[in-house]
Amino acid sequence: MNLTLHVWRQEGPGVPGRMERHEVAGVSPDMSFLEMMDLVNERLVREGKEPVAFEHDCREGICGCCSMVVNGAAHGPKKATTVCQLHMRTFKDGDTITVEPWRAAAFPVVRDLVVDRSALDRVIAAGGFVSVNTGSAPDGNAIPVPKEAADVSMDAAACIGCGACVAACPNASAMLFTAAKVAHLNRLPQGVPEAARRVRAMVEQMDAEGFGACTNHYECMEACPKEIPVRFIAEMNRAWTKASLSAESAAADKAGFG
């Protein structure tokens, strides 16, 4: 296959970027999209030009590193697929493909296709955990967890933290990411004691990072490589409202956290 690529190049944060055109020959349909990018970079090095910086690691769709907007879609055209698992057989000989970084105010560009997603870590640090110190846990089977609850919790926990939901959202909202963590933990008995505090703290941090609000476009769910459903956002909104009105929240405010 022969392709024409338009790739975003940007020296660094705050420096204006531009699209750069590359003619790519000899692409095999069995290659992954990133292996096609390897091919481009290998040639750039041979020509004495700097390779395109992009984030990647496991190339199995689980680490959440890879992050490219391909032809206007976060992770490209294939549903439920990270760009590392997108194969070139999805494209046709002669196609023109545009490749851009995640675009969101809360994800500043570091270089070329690499962006800074540390805002997501700070949302987790605000409350995306169960406060249990090592060594203090009861026996694993001491608290039964209904299979259905464990299954839905796992659906939410499948989030890989790639940020495609943010990149796909016209508001650059991180609601799906945050809601997935809230749904994962709040649904399990182990997460219940901190449920109210968790949702309030995470939403507050999410807002502080400059992510937009959800206005029900559902683009996040479309882009999500793990198909996390938007109903978790509705759940989070309910949990947040409930938490904000509860007596426990008033007590928490008084105590200085939450």
Binding site: F129, V130, V132, T134, G135, S136, A137, P138, G140, I143, A150, D151, S153, M154, A157, H184, L185, L188, Q190, G191
Partner: peptide
């Protein structure tokens, strides 16, 4: 420990 942390 992992169960207590909410590993599903």
């Amino acid at each position: 420990q992992c169960v207590a942390q909410g590993v599903p």
